[in-house]
Design a binder for these strands. Structure first.
Lengths: 337, 337
DNA sequence: GCGCTGCATGAAAACGTTGCCAGTCTTCCG
DNA sequence: CGGAAGACTGGCAACGTTTTCATGCAGCGC
């Protein structure tokens, strides 16, 4: 059934103000000049009737919805919510509202969600990493402009940004090497995850650079979550392999690993040094505060919003993207042996 | 391949299938019987043209948008994202999509955001706590069904749920008292926040019950954030007042407080016992794991989604809400003195 | 065979906006 | 003073659906 009879339309306003609907529309959108007198009458009528234009009717007519779709992976992950916050800020005051959907790292589900977004005729899409194939994105981009974070991809109607994750991994391990560590374990990310793989590549490069051959026994599987950090660290300790430091592929893994070390009575950084990746807000509040690689997540969100706004023809000043940065806190120290 | 799926309309489908638009619509919505023959033709045409019904046109006509609005306070707060995840789950498969906006604990902004939601003609609203006046909510509820979490409010078209926060505070302090603590500090929440006040009331009641008069010098201001916990704990220690345990109004405050204790070289729970509130996922991963009061946040989100679906006339089986529960981990112990 | 009933279908009227087109009324220039 | 250029404004046709309403056509009982 149609909206409740109480819903007031542009026609009602026109009637009360004694003008035509066209004129009301003109005033609403500032699309043509109208005499001050009628403008006043219309504005009064709008206020009196508490009129709100029906965005759907407008969308139907104009073909634009003032909504941008955001494909995140996990609404509960601090990494993504930090980016979301950036996007929210970047969109503030633009009139665009974000429609957030989650893909849960599943390519199939991601594609499905994007289709859902498109069914709602959103004006643009921001994709936060994920496992979607690039070809899929290119295909989607034939319909709407897309900004993709955590990807390198050049295609029409697509703007992609990705930080050199390899360099981040390199920086982290380099830091440990400089402290004197030689047996450095690595808690990997999800299998096949490019970012995780790149960070691992950095881990390898840093080793090579000082003439070390990374020991495969020091690399254990994680999943970017705390629980993965727990299992990985447990496996590592139980394997009996020797190590003095651990580089976790992201902060959440590091948190999990730290918990196991605590359980086993190992001191950080006394017995084992620990480095994370991301610099989540929480990294500064664990004890001891976590040494990690700072990613400007918030700025990335801000950037994505502005970039998309730009692609939509909105005036939006671009934001600069700071680079990855090593943040040395208190979970790293020289090895005792 | 998908042609310009954007511009394919029900009329195109009708033409290709050799039927009228009405019939296509009927098949789309299963609203009347159609011969198998035509149904087949239409379905083939839909597939061939990659037709997607324009939801806006449909909304315009039916007055329903299959969108529900969610007013959260801070998209980055783990408390809210956990609830959001519950809502997301509760909505899964219902066809409704959530439109998330943030009020940032500002009554004015909250009202503004809700108006924005209503301008988008959402079918229902979930309000996650906040500072909006109840009268405002009642007023909004005249337009859409509303589910409010963290409120006690009885009104037509409104469903409100709130846990007995006072009891939670009582349980936390009771736990400390039973361990033998007598000088228990309290890190308060934001000024005027009902939940925070109620938790404080529980703090007071637990004291009274054992014949103790809570010392005002032991109560310090916080803001539900880590930073607030830091300032509060710092102020407490600097004031020189004597205490053996701290009850923080929420986990995030506790995390901040824990950091300061670490900085000052005070052991937890050796020198000071610490209790939080909420049982955020992170509470299990700080060291030592935080003793806290568990709120079924996720379930609350699930509950809200189902309740709203029910109000919208959808078949949605209600979910039970477990009660608050004391989770004793490792930040509490008997006082040394 | 006649009127009924019921069913499948198409035509057309909305839903609330916007934007083109064509007026009307000034105003100004020659 | 005539006429033309502007400046405003109203009418009306879309936008893509859904939803009456009406129509034609079988089948049915008598």
């Amino acid at each position: 059934m149609p909206a409740d009879g109480a819903s007031v339309t542009v026609v009602d306003v026109a009637r009360v103000a004694g003008v035509s609907p066209s004129t009301v529309s003109r005033i609403l959108n500032g699309t043509a000049r109208v005499t001050a007198e009628k403008r006043k009458a219309v504005e009064d009528a709008i206020a009196a009737l508490d009129f709100r234009p029906n965005l759907f009717a407008r969308s139907l007519k104009t073909g634009t919805t003032m909504t941008i779709g955001i494909l995140t992976q996990d609404i509960e992950s601090p990494f993504f919510t930090r980016a979301l916050r950036g996007i929210e800020e970047g969109l503030a005051g633009s009139g665009y509202a974000p429609l957030i959907v989650s893909g849960h790292w599943d390519a199939e589900e991601e594609a499905e969600r994007i289709r859902l977004l498109m069914a709602r005729r959103i004006d643009g899409v921001v994709i936060l990493t994920g496992n979607l194939a690039d070809t899929q994105i290119v295909e989607f981009a034939t319909h709407q402009p897309i900004v993709a974070l955590g990807r390198t991809l050049v295609a029409p109607n697509v703007r992609a940004v990705r930080f050199a994750q390899e360099r981040g991994g390199y920086m982290a391990v380099r830091h440990l090497l400089e402290l004197g560590h030689r047996r450095i374990a690595f808690i990997a990310g999800p299998v096949g995850h490019v970012d995780a793989n790149d960070r691992y590549a950095g881990y390898v490069r840093a080793h090579m650079e000082v003439g070390l051959d990374p020991d495969p026994a020091l690399v254990v599987q994680g999943d970017f979550l705390e629980t993965g950090g727990v299992t990985a660290m447990t496996a590592l300790l139980d394997s009996g392999v020797d190590f003095t430091a651990v580089f976790a592929a992201n902060d959440q893994s590091a948190f999990g690993a730290r918990m196991v070390l605590y359980r086993r009575g190992l001191s950080v950084p006394g017995d084992v040094s620990l480095v994370g990746f991301d610099d989540l807000p929480a990294a500064a509040y664990v004890t001891p505060p976590l040494t990690t690689v700072h990613q400007p997540i918030h700025e990335m969100g801000l950037f994505a919003a502005r970039a998309l706004l730009g692609m939509l023809g909105q005036p939006a000043e671009p934001v600069p993207l700071p680079d990855l940065q090593m943040v040395v806190r208190e979970t790293t120290a020289a090895p005792k042996r």
